[in-house]
Protein backbone atom coordinates (compact mmCIF):
# COMPACT_ATOMS: atom_id res chain seq x y z
CA UNK A 1 0.00 0.00 0.00
CA UNK A 2 1.09 3.50 -0.63
CA UNK A 3 0.61 7.02 0.74
CA UNK A 4 0.79 9.92 -1.67
CA UNK A 5 1.29 13.47 -0.46
CA UNK A 6 -0.59 12.65 2.71
CA UNK A 7 -1.16 15.51 5.12
CA UNK A 8 -3.17 15.03 8.29
CA UNK A 9 -4.26 17.72 10.71
CA UNK A 10 -5.72 17.52 14.18
CA UNK A 11 -7.91 20.64 13.95
CA UNK A 12 -5.44 23.27 12.73
CA UNK A 13 -2.34 21.45 13.94
CA UNK A 14 -0.52 19.58 11.21
CA UNK A 15 0.51 16.16 12.47
CA UNK A 16 2.06 14.83 9.27
CA UNK A 17 2.87 16.75 6.17
CA UNK A 18 2.97 15.54 2.56
CA UNK A 19 4.08 12.02 3.29
CA UNK A 20 4.69 9.88 0.22
CA UNK A 21 5.69 6.40 1.26
CA UNK A 22 5.18 2.94 -0.18
CA UNK A 23 4.69 0.05 2.22
CA UNK A 24 6.05 -2.70 0.02
CA UNK A 25 4.31 -6.03 -0.30
CA UNK A 26 5.63 -8.89 1.86
CA UNK A 27 8.26 -6.73 3.42
CA UNK A 28 8.60 -5.22 6.86
CA UNK A 29 8.71 -1.45 6.88
CA UNK A 30 9.81 0.14 10.14
CA UNK A 31 8.76 3.67 11.00
CA UNK A 32 11.19 5.36 13.35
CA UNK A 33 11.63 8.85 14.76
CA UNK A 34 11.47 10.81 18.00
CA UNK A 35 8.23 11.15 19.99
CA UNK A 36 5.73 13.38 18.25
CA UNK A 37 7.32 12.96 14.83
CA UNK A 38 4.09 11.61 13.32
CA UNK A 39 5.07 7.96 12.83
CA UNK A 40 2.14 6.56 14.86
CA UNK A 41 -0.25 9.03 13.28
CA UNK A 42 0.92 7.87 9.87
CA UNK A 43 0.52 4.20 10.82
CA UNK A 44 -3.01 4.87 12.04
CA UNK A 45 -4.04 6.58 8.83
CA UNK A 46 -3.29 3.32 6.99
CA UNK A 47 -6.47 1.72 8.34
CA UNK A 48 -8.25 4.96 9.19
CA UNK A 49 -7.93 4.62 12.94
CA UNK A 50 -7.59 8.40 13.08
CA UNK A 51 -11.20 8.69 11.91
CA UNK A 52 -12.11 7.99 15.52
CA UNK A 53 -10.46 11.22 16.67
CA UNK A 54 -12.77 14.21 16.21
CA UNK A 55 -11.43 17.17 14.23
CA UNK A 56 -9.00 15.28 12.02
CA UNK A 57 -8.88 16.11 8.37
CA UNK A 58 -6.55 15.08 5.60
CA UNK A 59 -5.39 15.77 2.09
CA UNK A 60 -3.61 13.38 -0.23
CA UNK A 61 -4.37 9.74 -0.82
CA UNK A 62 -3.63 6.29 0.53
CA UNK A 63 -3.87 3.47 -1.93
CA UNK A 64 -4.51 -0.16 -1.13
CA UNK A 65 -4.31 -2.16 -4.36
CA UNK A 66 -5.00 1.06 -6.30
CA UNK A 67 -8.16 1.76 -4.24
CA UNK A 68 -8.21 5.04 -2.32
CA UNK A 69 -9.02 3.96 1.24
CA UNK A 70 -10.59 7.34 2.00
CA UNK A 71 -13.02 7.01 -0.89
CA UNK A 72 -16.70 7.36 0.07
CA UNK A 73 -17.43 3.89 -1.23
CA UNK A 74 -15.01 2.24 1.16
CA UNK A 75 -16.47 0.28 4.04
CA UNK A 76 -14.20 1.07 6.98
CA UNK A 77 -14.96 -2.24 8.69
CA UNK A 78 -13.92 -4.07 5.55
CA UNK A 79 -10.80 -1.88 5.27
CA UNK A 80 -9.80 -2.78 8.82
CA UNK A 81 -10.29 -6.44 8.04
CA UNK A 82 -7.85 -6.08 5.17
CA UNK A 83 -5.48 -3.89 7.16
CA UNK A 84 -5.21 -5.27 10.69
CA UNK A 85 -3.59 -3.64 13.67
CA UNK A 86 -1.68 -4.70 16.78
CA UNK A 87 -1.19 -2.18 19.55
CA UNK A 88 1.51 -1.37 22.05
CA UNK A 89 -0.46 -2.59 25.01
CA UNK A 90 -1.89 -6.02 24.43
CA UNK A 91 -5.64 -5.70 24.64
CA UNK A 92 -7.28 -9.12 24.68
CA UNK A 93 -11.03 -9.19 25.21
CA UNK A 94 -12.12 -10.52 28.61
CA UNK A 95 -13.08 -13.76 26.93
CA UNK A 96 -11.52 -17.15 26.43
CA UNK A 97 -8.40 -17.59 24.32
CA UNK A 98 -10.48 -19.29 21.65
CA UNK A 99 -13.15 -16.60 21.56
CA UNK A 100 -10.54 -13.85 21.26
CA UNK A 101 -9.24 -15.32 18.05
CA UNK A 102 -12.69 -16.37 16.79
CA UNK A 103 -14.18 -12.93 17.46
CA UNK A 104 -13.46 -11.32 14.11
CA UNK A 105 -14.58 -14.44 12.28
CA UNK A 106 -17.90 -14.55 14.13
CA UNK A 107 -18.44 -10.86 13.46
CA UNK A 108 -17.75 -11.64 9.83
CA UNK A 109 -20.55 -14.19 9.92
CA UNK A 110 -18.67 -17.47 10.25
CA UNK A 111 -20.80 -20.01 12.10
CA UNK A 112 -19.49 -23.41 11.10
CA UNK A 113 -17.84 -24.92 14.19
CA UNK A 114 -15.24 -26.93 12.28
CA UNK A 115 -14.27 -24.00 10.14
CA UNK A 116 -13.90 -21.81 13.23
CA UNK A 117 -11.74 -24.43 14.94
CA UNK A 118 -9.51 -24.71 11.90
CA UNK A 119 -9.06 -20.97 11.52
CA UNK A 120 -8.38 -20.40 15.23
CA UNK A 121 -5.74 -23.13 15.28
CA UNK A 122 -4.15 -21.81 12.11
CA UNK A 123 -3.96 -18.29 13.52
CA UNK A 124 -2.58 -19.43 16.86
CA UNK A 125 0.02 -21.54 15.08
CA UNK A 126 0.83 -18.61 12.84
CA UNK A 127 1.38 -16.45 15.90
CA UNK A 128 3.64 -19.13 17.44
CA UNK A 129 1.27 -19.50 20.39
CA UNK A 130 -0.54 -22.77 19.65
CA UNK A 131 1.77 -25.11 21.56
CA UNK A 132 1.55 -22.93 24.65
CA UNK A 133 -2.26 -22.63 24.74
CA UNK A 134 -3.73 -25.63 22.90
CA UNK A 135 -4.71 -27.33 26.17
CA UNK A 136 -6.42 -24.31 27.66
CA UNK A 137 -8.27 -22.67 24.79
CA UNK A 138 -11.32 -22.11 26.96
CA UNK A 139 -9.47 -20.36 29.74
CA UNK A 140 -9.52 -16.57 29.99
CA UNK A 141 -7.07 -14.74 27.76
CA UNK A 142 -6.32 -12.45 30.67
CA UNK A 143 -4.49 -15.31 32.41
CA UNK A 144 -1.77 -15.31 29.74
CA UNK A 145 1.59 -13.60 30.21
CA UNK A 146 2.20 -10.22 28.59
CA UNK A 147 4.15 -11.75 25.74
CA UNK A 148 1.51 -14.42 25.17
CA UNK A 149 -1.26 -11.81 25.26
CA UNK A 150 0.56 -9.84 22.59
CA UNK A 151 0.93 -12.91 20.39
CA UNK A 152 -2.75 -13.63 21.00
CA UNK A 153 -3.56 -10.16 19.68
CA UNK A 154 -1.43 -10.90 16.62
CA UNK A 155 -3.32 -14.20 16.18
CA UNK A 156 -6.61 -12.30 16.52
CA UNK A 157 -5.50 -9.81 13.89
CA UNK A 158 -4.40 -12.66 11.59
CA UNK A 159 -7.60 -14.71 11.99
CA UNK A 160 -9.50 -12.54 9.54
CA UNK A 161 -6.64 -12.96 7.05
CA UNK A 162 -5.70 -9.35 6.47
CA UNK A 163 -3.31 -8.31 3.72
CA UNK A 164 -1.46 -5.77 5.78
CA UNK A 165 -0.52 -5.86 9.47
CA UNK A 166 0.14 -2.61 11.28
CA UNK A 167 2.07 -2.86 14.52
CA UNK A 168 2.37 0.05 16.90
CA UNK A 169 5.21 -0.65 19.34
CA UNK A 170 4.21 -4.31 19.58
CA UNK A 171 7.05 -5.27 21.92
CA UNK A 172 7.76 -2.17 23.95
CA UNK A 173 6.08 -3.53 27.08
CA UNK A 174 7.69 -6.96 26.87
CA UNK A 175 10.84 -8.52 28.33
CA UNK A 176 13.73 -9.42 25.99
CA UNK A 177 12.69 -13.07 25.53
CA UNK A 178 9.08 -12.20 24.72
CA UNK A 179 10.39 -9.44 22.45
CA UNK A 180 12.61 -11.92 20.64
CA UNK A 181 9.59 -14.19 20.09
CA UNK A 182 7.58 -11.33 18.61
CA UNK A 183 10.50 -10.36 16.39
CA UNK A 184 10.93 -13.95 15.23
CA UNK A 185 7.22 -14.02 14.52
CA UNK A 186 7.49 -10.86 12.43
CA UNK A 187 10.21 -12.56 10.37
CA UNK A 188 7.91 -15.51 9.72
CA UNK A 189 4.84 -13.40 9.04
CA UNK A 190 6.42 -11.41 6.28
CA UNK A 191 6.31 -14.44 4.00
CA UNK A 192 2.55 -13.90 3.87
CA UNK A 193 1.87 -10.39 5.08
CA UNK A 194 2.86 -6.85 4.38
CA UNK A 195 3.93 -5.34 7.67
CA UNK A 196 4.43 -1.80 8.91
CA UNK A 197 5.83 -1.41 12.40
CA UNK A 198 6.33 1.64 14.58
CA UNK A 199 9.09 1.27 17.10
CA UNK A 200 11.07 3.48 19.45
CA UNK A 201 13.71 0.80 19.67
CA UNK A 202 16.10 1.44 16.82
CA UNK A 203 17.85 -1.88 17.25
CA UNK A 204 14.49 -3.53 16.86
CA UNK A 205 13.88 -1.66 13.63
CA UNK A 206 17.34 -2.75 12.49
CA UNK A 207 16.62 -6.37 13.41
CA UNK A 208 13.16 -6.89 11.99
CA UNK A 209 12.71 -4.60 9.03
CA UNK A 210 13.64 -4.66 5.37
CA UNK A 211 13.05 -0.96 4.91
CA UNK A 212 13.19 1.87 7.39
CA UNK A 213 11.43 5.22 7.17
CA UNK A 214 12.65 8.05 9.38
CA UNK A 215 10.06 10.62 10.42
CA UNK A 216 10.89 13.96 11.96
CA UNK A 217 8.50 16.74 12.92
CA UNK A 218 5.70 15.40 10.78
CA UNK A 219 7.85 14.89 7.71
CA UNK A 220 9.31 11.82 6.10
CA UNK A 221 13.02 12.60 6.06
CA UNK A 222 14.31 9.45 4.44
CA UNK A 223 13.22 5.95 3.56
CA UNK A 224 15.53 3.24 2.32
CA UNK A 225 16.81 -0.30 2.83
CA UNK A 226 17.30 -0.80 6.57
CA UNK A 227 20.96 -1.70 6.15
CA UNK A 228 21.61 1.55 4.35
CA UNK A 229 19.72 3.67 6.90
CA UNK A 230 21.78 2.19 9.73
CA UNK A 231 25.19 2.14 8.03
CA UNK A 232 25.13 5.02 5.62
CA UNK A 233 22.04 7.24 5.73
CA UNK A 234 21.81 9.96 3.12
CA UNK A 235 20.28 12.69 5.23
CA UNK A 236 22.06 14.49 8.04
CA UNK A 237 18.95 14.37 10.26
CA UNK A 238 18.72 10.60 9.87
CA UNK A 239 22.42 10.27 10.67
CA UNK A 240 21.99 12.37 13.81
CA UNK A 241 19.00 10.34 14.95
CA UNK A 242 20.41 6.86 14.42
CA UNK A 243 23.71 7.82 16.05
CA UNK A 244 21.93 9.34 19.04
CA UNK A 245 22.78 12.99 18.46
CA UNK A 246 19.34 14.47 18.99
CA UNK A 247 18.58 17.17 21.55
Amino acid sequence: MEARELTLRYGTKTAISKISLAILERQVTALIGPSGCGKSTFLRTLNRMNDLIPGTNHTGTILLDSMDIYDRSVDVVDLRRRVGMVFQKSNPFPKSIFENVAYGLRVGGMKDKNELNTRVEKSLRGAALWDEVKDRLNESALGLSGGQQQRLCIARAMAVEPEVLLMDEPASALDPIATAKIEELIHELKAQYTIAIVTHNMQQAARVSDRTAFFYMGELVECGPTEQIFTNPREKRTEDYVTGKFG
Binding site: T231, T238, V242
Partner: peptide, 9 residues
Amino acid sequence: RQPAASDLR
Protein backbone atom coordinates in the same frame (compact mmCIF):
# COMPACT_ATOMS: atom_id res chain seq x y z
CA ARG B 1 26.43 1.22 22.45
CA GLN B 2 25.31 -0.58 19.31
CA PRO B 3 26.74 2.19 17.15
CA ALA B 4 25.05 3.05 13.85
CA ALA B 5 25.83 4.99 10.67
CA SER B 6 29.02 7.11 10.88
CA ASP B 7 29.75 5.81 14.39
CA LEU B 8 29.57 2.23 13.15
CA ARG B 9 31.82 3.08 10.22
